[in-house]
């Protein structure tokens, strides 16, 4: 999923303070799963903002709407009626959702209430870790299901480096050495020989490095 963390209150307050009527839009997808931008968080942020502005002697009118998916124009269309009576939109979706709303309602200022972080997985309750950088040419099949690009601090394709100690990364001892994990996994699968195979310099064209990416499915595109 796409993970996010809420922006500091001061930053959010600075964005909305020039306005009297805000449309606060949440998203029921990834940001809801990582408890940062779903219905519940929309309600909490709404209350916090109203309390803050009441203390300042200002009544901030907030409409709360949580869409099924903010990155989908079909669902964003549901905002059509409510957006008219708002001076600005405060979105609690990831950057994809914020941009979809901004593209649809060009005349309204749209502000993000969260910082989009990474594509990750849930480790346990309340803990998410980065797992994928969307390089566009997946190597998990040859690295034992562990991504060296997302999980090695140096993105080494032929690791580990000399900083791997007791299975931990030199960057931070809370981080597992991805290449130790790869080695352990390949060994468990009886595929240790694979670690000897040199991976060639990666072709980064499929990653963001080839410019902004787009997928066009001719069988689906209208």
């Amino acid at each position: 999923m796409i993970t996010a963390v809420r922006k500091p209150m001061e930053e959010i307050i600075a964005c909305v303070s020039p306005y009297d009527r805000i449309l606060l839009a949440g998203c029921n997808e990834c940001v809801s799963v990582c408890s940062v931008g779903g219905r519940k968080e929309v309600s909490l942020l709404s209350s916090a903002l109203q309390m803050h502005f009441l203390k300042q002697g200002k009544t901030l009118e907030i409409q709360e709407v949580t869409l099924e998916r903010q990155c989908d124009p079909e669902y964003v269309e549901e905002l059509v009626n409510s957006v008219d009576s708002a001076d600005a939109v405060l979105s609690m979706a990831c950057g994809c959702g914020v941009q979809t709303v901004a593209a649809r309602f060009r005349e309204k200022p749209v502000f993000p209430a969260v910082n989009t972080a990474f594509m990750g997985a849930s480790e346990r309750q309340g803990v998410w870790s980065e797992r994928c950088q969307g390089c566009g040419d997946c190597v998990l099949g040859i690295t034992g299901g562990i991504c060296p690009i997302a999980r090695c601090s140096k993105r080494l394709m032929n690791g580990p480096c000399g900083g791997s100690t007791k299975g931990k990364c030199e960057i931070d001892t809370d981080i597992d050495c991805a290449w130790q994990l790869i080695w352990d996994r390949l060994k468990a699968l009886g595929l240790e020989n694979r670690i000897e195979e040199i991976m060639e310099a990666k072709d980064w064209r499929t990653s963001r490095d080839g410019g902004p990416r787009k997928i066009v499915r001719e069988d689906l595109a209208s």
């Binding site: 310099a201 072709d203 980064w204 064209r205 490095d209 080839g210 410019g211």
Partner: peptide, 13 residues
Amino acid sequence: EPMASGDHRDAKP
């Protein structure tokens, strides 16, 4: 020049 226009198109900018 964008990497895509050069002679090492697979390089990481």
